[in-house]
Design a protein around this nucleic acid. Structure first.
Lengths: 125, 125
DNA sequence: TATTTACATGAACAATTTATCATATGTTTA
DNA sequence: TAAACATATGATAAATTGTTCATGTAAATA
């Protein structure tokens, strides 16, 4: 990763000077640090698969057990469990066990707002 | 895709009845149609890579030419162009040509809001 | 008009992601 | 305690994605 940057600077960049040095400097100042960028892109990655998005959307209004989620997304229990694992890792869903069943629900208040804004945005055009 | 669903229903689902049939029916009613789900997940996919997210973040406050974007994200011109292609396809950025340079900018008013909410969400914990 | 500059793109390869299959774990029930 | 049920998970294969390299195109300029 570091080597790549060195390569670019020496071989590929548009000479020594950028076209709008001030804009570049300003953008670099305002840029969130790499940790935040990786965390944020991971967060969005959770929404970037239609099966996961279906799971998230289904959970917005109520908690559901895994079996019902399989029914709703039309996928195997194993596939759904793997996706839930991803969503758990991103702390988008939480779960509680009740006997043999495990109930999942949204672990965050912002999720619904983000989905709502996005859907309304995409519906506009 | 269709065949997969049939397989699941006959081989894998938890018998004939779900655990909470009403909840499943309700979730299925409220579920956006598949076209919307694919479109929305594609939209989020644009944000799911840290290089693309860096490009988007840089463009939020101003338009930038490709060369300056390369400088900011620290990647080759080719890599950045390929990413811009993805962002164009999702209609997240627009561009205008000015002589030899091409200037990119955000093609949507919701983008900043979505990023802002997400960053604030991730900063909370 | 030949060259240079800025950017785009196709092909190939590497890395990552997703689905499937088999199996393991935790809980209830016979 | 054995069997059944609901869910989780590791390994593998298939699909997708991201980067690089080589080359193509449009505009400016020598």
């Amino acid at each position: 990763m570091e080597y790549k940057q060195i390569d670019i600077l020496t071989e590929e960049s548009c000479e020594e000077l950028h076209h709008d040095e001030a804009a570049v400097a300003d953008a670099e100042t305002k840029m969130p640090d790499d940790d935040m960028l990786f965390e944020a892109s991971d967060f969005f990655k959770a929404f970037s698969d239609s099966s996961r998005l279906k799971i998230i959307t289904a959970l917005v209004s109520r908690e559901l057990c895994v079996c019902d989620l399989c029914e709703i997304v039309g996928q195997s229990q194993s596939a759904v469990s793997h996706q839930l694992r991803v969503l758990r890792a991103s702390r988008i869903v939480k779960f509680r066990r009740e006997g043999k069943q495990v109930f999942y629900s949204i672990d965050d208040t912002h999720i619904e707002e983000i989905i709502r804004i996005t859907i309304s945005h995409l519906s506009e055009e």
